[in-house]
């Protein structure tokens, strides 16, 4: 071995060949792994099914709550009455467990439409609409109470019902899964 090179530190053509071959093999190996890792990601059908969905709001009467699914998650669309909006706005935000103004939970000028995820933030049960002390939602499992803005007002739930990403396409149509661009 010692005879092949006189100076160990000096790179030779053979060293370069070793490195180039090794590097090529490593790159090839890493490339081979890529499709296997990528195969684990959500597939094309799932991604297509998870695309934003349009919901027509016209059939939803005032005071009504409609359930839709998006990406396997339950979403409530609530057409709030003037009374319910007023109740939600007249709350002292600082007194809330998860302080958030009603205006931050609806789109501007569309206060009648409340769109929230439909699983209780405690353990994910489905709360019942228009029930409980604040006539928002009441979770039958452990008694969490939500107001007409979907904010937690009692019971074990730690945070408000979260708002899914959505945007108004027109006055009567929303696209769930699309962040507002305006």
């Amino acid at each position: 071995m010692a005879e092949t090179t006189t100076h160990v530190a000096e790179p030779t053509r053979r060293d370069f060949l070793y490195i180039a071959t090794g590097a090529a093999a490593v790159v090839g190996g890493a490339t081979l792994v890529w499709p296997f890792v990528q195969s684990l990601a959500p597939d094309a059908a799932t991604v297509a099914a998870g695309a934003p969905v349009e919901v027509d709001l016209t059939p939803i009467a005032e005071g009504q709550i409609v359930k839709v699914f998006w990406r396997g998650k339950l979403i409530f669309i609530r057409h709030r009455t003037a009374e319910e909006i007023k109740a939600a706005e007249d709350v002292n935000v600082a007194s809330l467990r998860d302080p958030q103004a009603d205006s931050a939970r609806v789109k501007e000028g569309k206060a009648q439409w409340l769109i929230v995820y439909g699983n209780c933030t405690h353990l994910g049960c489905v709360p019942l609409g228009q029930q409980g002390e604040y006539h928002g939602w009441f979770c039958p499992c452990h008694g969490s109470v939500f107001d007409t803005s979907g904010r937690v007002r009692g019971g074990p739930a730690p945070i408000n019902l979260p708002i899914p990403p959505y945007a108004f396409a027109s006055d009567t149509k929303i696209i769930i899964g699309q962040e507002a661009t305006a």
Binding site: V37, A41, T46, G50, G72, K73
Partner: peptide, 17 residues
């Protein structure tokens, strides 16, 4: 997590893998 699930929540791809 989405690579573990193979979707946006635990579902059929998760069970299968």
């Amino acid at each position: 997590v989405s690579y573990l699930w193979g979707g946006y929540s635990v579902g059929n791809p998760t069970l299968n893998r």
